[in-house]
Amino acid sequence: MRTWPSILSTLLPALVLIGCQRETAFPPPPQATPKPYFARVMLDMTPGIPPPFGAAILAGVEPPAPGLNWRWLSSPASFSFELEDRVDWQLDIHLVVVDKVQQQLGHQRLIVNLNGKTLITQTLDKSGPVVLTLPAQPGPKPTLELQIEPCLPEPHSPPYCVLIQKVGWLRELKGEYK
């Protein structure tokens, strides 16, 4: 019976002392390197990443698959966006040219149409990732169309053209805060 008070009276001050002796000095953390920051209105094909406000796939993109950050793109594929009314947006397109398609069909051609006008035409002659960042004047509600020629016919789905990872708009956040 008499042991409990002694245990208690020993334990509580011990806890206090241990609390006082905890490590409270630290080395400098990893140093962040200065980098530009971008606002993005981007359709990301990675499952779980929601589309930004007003952005939508209108046509030409196959359904997503779990664990994959790309989806098959057929031609023509079209997308719509809503952007803040600012002028310094850039178009950003992340594609992957597929080796198997290139081997069977040879070079492919990408045509980017913005609001019905051709923005750029580019030859895709190497398999692997392709990132296009294009200055553009999109307007507040741009519609984007990607045409790929030729594409690989598939018996049970639209022809496979390239893989798409991301498509959308970005703007470097610099200058004055608005």
Partner: peptide, 23 residues
């Protein structure tokens, strides 16, 4: 900033590194 530095504070020392992270 050197790895040998030790950062601390009279109150809430756990956040002290945040004043030395270049952010």
């Amino acid at each position: 900033r050197q790895p040998g530095w030790r950062l601390t504070a009279s109150a809430n020392p756990w956040d002290a590194p945040l004043a030395f992270d270049n952010l």
